[in-house]
């Protein structure tokens, strides 16, 4: 399992959470939309935000986190600037997506669901994204890149790293 506690950062400004909650006052049934809004804003569900939501909705934290961890769409660790989703659907699998996963994991030194230390990349394995004709395919921040081979993935990662390098080595 991923160690969620370790990756949680407490230093988040939760003013936005308050704003969302004000809109959904007293609405236990609105848990999912609230979580979605909060995740869109922060890129993930910060622990402080979850605590605030739990407190306001009078929903025990254990149950709220239970909901959040049930749905694949929610993440409780901060995401990197680039979300690398590697499709592991049937078509991509046949075209060797497992190798892509391995390669990416090696290049980024992270596992599924984790974020690199420099907060640049988050890697995720996902189910079919509906672009089978391009298999094997990954998305980088919702932009699909198809027919990918080992070199291709290496290129993408290097390029993005270079673009974001503060000072060239």
């Amino acid at each position: 399992m991923t160690n969620m506690a370790a990756a949680v950062d407490g230093e988040v400004d939760i003013a936005y959470v308050r704003e969302v909650l004000d809109k959904y006052q007293d609405a236990r049934g609105a848990v999912i939309p609230i979580l979605q809004k909060v995740q869109t804003h922060y890129g993930y569900l910060p622990r402080a935000a979850l605590e605030m939501i739990s407190h306001t909705l009078r929903m025990p934290l254990a149950h709220l986190v239970g909901v959040a961890s049930f749905y694949a769409q929610f993440r409780m660790t901060p995401r990197g600037k680039y979300m690398m989703k590697i499709c592991c659907g049937t078509a991509c699998h046949v075209k060797g997506s497992a190798k892509l996963v391995e390669k990416t994991a090696e290049l980024l030194d992270v596992n599924h669901g984790q974020t690199t230390r420099d907060k640049l990349f988050t890697m995720e394995r996902v189910a079919c994204i509906g672009a089978c004709s391009l298999a094997p395919v990954i998305t980088v921040n919702d932009e699909a890149v198809g027919y990918l081979d080992m070199e291709g993935i290496e290129d993408i990662i290097h390029k993005l790293r270079d673009e974001n390098a503060i000072a060239p080595k």
Binding site: M4, L61, A62, V65, G66, S69, M76
Partner: peptide, 15 residues
């Protein structure tokens, strides 16, 4: 509460 899902599901505390 119930945390996570599928084969990884467990009952326990958040985080």
């Amino acid at each position: 509460g119930f945390q996570k899902r599928g084969y990884n599901a467990e009952v326990g505390t958040p985080f």
